[in-house]
Amino acid sequence: MKILAQLTFGAAALVLSAGIASADKLEDITAAGKIVVGVKQDYRPWGYLDSDGNIVGLEIDLAKDVADKLGVAVELVPVVSSNRMEFLQQGRIDLIIATMGDNEKRRKVVGMIEPNYYAGGANVIAPKGSGLTAWADLDGKDVCAIQGAYYNKQVARDYSANIVAFAGVPEATAALANGSCVGFVYDNTWIESQLASDAQWAEYEMPFVTEQLQPWAIAVPLDELDMAYGDKMRDIVTDWHKSGFLIERNAANGIADNPFLQEQQDRLK
């Protein structure tokens, strides 16, 4: 009985806190003088720790720009893929800018801001000097991959590559390292981050133009999506594309040109 009472009380408190949170978030942020943004700190160069222990990277540049545009300070909270949406729902953070892919399932949980600010896709990591310059060079060659990745089929079909798919990234990279395949097809963003951060990949490169893009979105709490806060974020992302800010920051962080950014700029201009 006591437990039941506690549960009821807990539920009531939850409803109450949700009620408070759904008051105009944009005003809350302005009043507090800071916006709390959830970012990655383990995904170089999108979000990582520099040698002084500060979180830096492309997405941190974006978070700072959001704060500047709102005229408030920024507070960065490191998140990982498995807790970022929960943090947002609990009100621990106000905004997610954390390499988050946009899909239907997640749209039921958090408010995905459109236009999408970024996109990841498929590319190949291959040893320098492998002679690969375009996707068509994969014709008839063994290419390592991860079982179940959405782009495997298209790479096999369009370029007649022989997909050698493993259960996990360590197996696939081990097979790549011992020369069982000419390259490893995987998320271009993962490849970028490995090339940028791990000395193991010093003799490797990402030779192709990224394909089969899947959009990423920044996210606000679901019930803020159609409120002033959501509108403001939409304006900011649109402006990032229009003004070329994203393209510029992308290059400034040492990331290879992303066809998605150019596409969006052309579309929104």
Binding site: G129, N178, G179, S180
Partner: peptide, 24 residues
């Protein structure tokens, strides 16, 4: 065999990069 022995048993392929001697 594949990941431990295969990494040691390598030959130089036609493209000049090391390749495993025995396929999967």
């Amino acid at each position: 065999f594949y990941f431990a022995v295969g990494t040691v048993l390598r030959v130089t392929g036609e493209n000049g990069l090391p390749q495993p001697l025995v396929s999967n």
